[in-house]
């Protein structure tokens, strides 16, 4: 670790970590060191971003926490229990949405519950609720190919919400949608974090996006992937989501992170 800068003084007690990562390393076959000895805590009920240039291992770390990828060494604890496989307390939102093209929106959203063996009527009622939460009512019986990229990701989000996991793992969820849709998504995400009281882990390569949506930002540097700083932007959100992008703290944080990351770019 080179620098650790906190904008917010660490006076108030941090919430209990929902996810904690201890000494995680990942060496891919062939010797590429994607992650080197990562120690991180993700507080309950907050949105923590993993931010860094490509090759810094942010998606690798998220997939290890998800249990989709084995770590070379180290442990991951979720809600106090060590995990190595996917579990019902975590749900994943994919960059490319990962929807089943042969299934309707309703079945896609209910899929996590279907895999758990929940009866059809029950799971579809729950799916219906979350389809409304993400604003897709009226599209229940539409197939994914008929939806826009933004709407498809709403399906992916509803599917992750429907299983009522404590931890939502989001892998660059808005990178495949257009800029206007992305901004709307970011606003909706803030409301969702405030309402759902879940722990969000959010991978992004956009500094602005990370500063806008995050309670905490973990900065990662590449070769080998490691944590260089943890930033807690303390931007007032009460004044309204529209004002965040004009807030001096928002602008300063974006600048500070950019200067911190610049040296890792060739």
């Amino acid at each position: 670790m080179s620098t650790v800068s906190n904008l917010k003084p660490t006076a108030e007690p941090a919430p209990a970590p929902m996810v904690s990562v201890r000494g995680i390393s990942k060496i891919y076959p062939g010797g590429v060191e994607a992650l080197s000895n990562i120690d991180l805590d993700f507080p309950e009920g907050e949105l923590t971003s993993l931010l860094g240039p490509s090759g810094c291992g942010k998606t690798t770390l998220l997939k290890i926490i998800a249990g989709l990828l084995p770590a070379t060494s180290g442990t991951v604890e979720v809600d106090g229990r060590p995990v190595t496989k996917p579990g019902p307390e975590r749900a994943f939102v994919f960059q490319d949405f990962a929807l089943m093209p042969w299934a309707t929106v309703l079945r896609n959203v209910a899929f996590g519950l279907e895999l758990r063996g929940m009866p059809k009527a029950e799971r579809e009622a729950i799916a219906q609720t979350y389809i409304e939460v993400v604003g897709l009512q009226g599209f229940e019986h539409t197939y994914p190919h008929a939806l826009s990229g933004g709407m498809r990701q709403r399906v992916g989000l509803a599917r992750a919400l429907a299983v009522d996991a404590k931890v939502l793992l989001m892998d660059e969820p808005f990178s495949a949608v257009d800029e206007q849709t992305r901004r709307k998504f970011q606003e909706d995400l803030l409301e969702l974090v405030a309402k759902e009281r879940k722990t969000f882990l959010f991978v992004t390569h956009s500094i602005e996006e990370a500063v806008y949506v995050s309670d905490r930002i973990v900065l990662l540097a590449p070769r080998p992937g490691r944590v260089t700083a943890i930033v807690e932007p303390d931007i007032p959100r009460e004044a309204g989501l529209d004002r965040i992008r004009r807030d001096p703290v928002y602008l300063d944080t974006v600048e500070e992170i950019w200067h911190g990351l610049k040296r890792y770019l060739e």
């Binding site: 989709l68 996917p86 749900a91 994943f92 990962a98 996590g112």
Partner: peptide, 10 residues
């Protein structure tokens, strides 16, 4: 990612 999706939902 479709394979990962199935795995992540158990």
């Amino acid at each position: 990612s479709l394979v990962d999706m199935a795995a992540s939902f158990g």
